[in-house]
Design a protein around this nucleic acid. Structure first.
Lengths: 246, 246
DNA sequence: AAGTGGTCTAGACCACCGA
DNA sequence: CGGTGGTCTAGACCACTTA
């Protein structure tokens, strides 16, 4: 009677996964009840629940009180996740950087800008042109245009004073919560005006990163457009397989 | 005795979260044991475990048999996740693309290449030079160099025949499982040879994406280096806040 | 050897759902 | 109403770590 290396709830979970993948329980169908399974497999209800919990975490089943346990998907097709412990990690700057505000003005979205900012033409925005430096160096890492709603004008004060992240200011001073950030990365030839600021040749290669900061209820709170010159910055992301199966 | 609307494990979890945020339990410190808490709060050990499970899911604590429950982070707020349902989503190509193999050769890593491939100088690799096209168009979306171990030479056959993803071939034919993908994105001036292939001006702006495909036990299985010209491609990622707090 | 979390049992009552 | 999953108790033994 050597005790099995793998716990029973795990064995049961694996058995259920096999059954679901084999089509014994179709997607949308109800799985046997907890009592039924605890009977059939000779384990306690707790053990069945532990197994079900695993399947639920994998997104294979959904459970409803009074209804039962329904098959949600046939397989936990690999899911890869990347995670940030903090939004600041998105930028991958060390803390040893400072933000310099070059200009601040209110703009009305032109056709071009409206596309970029995903708004109607003529929409008013408050725009900050900024540069980020590694502390102690003269060469900027990036040039950034930040757009916020004109109501958030007071942010300008804080931005100029301290070199903080804009999204942090929006969260702190306006009680909004950034619920989602959409990021789009592309290559651009750096236009002469910005190239001059960054100290690179006009039309040289740059990374353009657009970020859309979205609050509750899909409200767009802020947009930033970053330009990173070649070699001064790379964006790294690590995607990890969420579920290991044996 | 009206039963509280919120279950006890939830109340306990919230109490613990408050304590952690208040600094009563420092990051890195051990929380009271399950027995201690079940005593103190007058609940069963199961209820304490349920509360701990919640905190663990939030990434606030980590638990080790024989050691105890350690505080991992002071606050769960701001944990942003991006997810891929499949590795192919990493590329964000529609399925309507095809891969063309331009060349295949065995190389020994030069100093430069060794840095890029994170290996020792002189290490042997099988290199494929490829292009990806949208079906029905003549202009490539991207130029890609793919590196695999020479043992995987047979992959070349499959690559040439069908336009599949290399990582898929590694998984299918060699029984390896891609457990992690590290991705590094930077800007480059596209060198003349590649510019010619892509049909763009030499030294024009491009996106360089390096991807490291890693298997079990941190084994590096494959590396790819992609070049995307300006405007033909952008990489989008959506980061979502994982935990909503009330 | 003592103490931790990990697994498991056998009970119980509840809130919710459909008939 | 009977049956579902959700919560909870009071026990038990085990595997792992530290001393």
């Amino acid at each position: 009677m050597s005790p099995p290396a793998t716990p029973r709830y795990r064995q049961l979970a694996d058995a259920l996964i096999r059954d679901i993948e084999a089509g014994k329980y179709a997607v949308g169908a109800l799985l046997p009840t907890e009592f039924e399974l605890s009977d059939r497999y000779g384990v306690s209800r707790h053990t069945v629940r532990e197994a079900f919990r695993r399947l639920a975490d994998m997104g294979l089943i959904s459970r409803r009180q009074g209804i039962g346990t329904r098959v949600q998907a046939k397989s936990a097709e690999h899911r890869y996740l990347a995670s940030l412990s903090t939004l600041a990690d998105l930028f991958q700057y060390t803390k040893r950087t400072r933000l310099k505000v070059l200009a601040e003005h209110e703009v009305k979205a032109s056709a071009l800008l409206a596309t970029m900012l995903r708004c109607k033409r003529g929409q008013a925005w408050l725009q900050f042109d900024t540069c980020r430096y590694r502390i102690g160096t003269a060469q900027p890492i990036s040039y950034t245009q930040i757009y916020v709603y004109p109501e958030y004008a007071a942010i300008g004060e804080h931005l100029a004073k301290r070199s903080v992240w804009v999204y942090g200011l929006v969260e702190r001073y306006y009680g909004e919560r950034i619920v989602e950030v959409q990021q789009e990365i592309g290559a651009v030839a750096i236009e002469p005006r910005i190239a001059a600021i960054l100290g690179v040749k006009p039309r040289s290669a740059g990374l353009q990163v657009l970020r859309y900061y979205i609050g509750r209820g899909k409200r767009l709170l802020s947009v930033s457009m970053n330009i990173y010159p070649e070699k001064r910055f790379t964006i790294s992301t690590s995607w990890k397989l969420e579920w290991e199966r044996s």
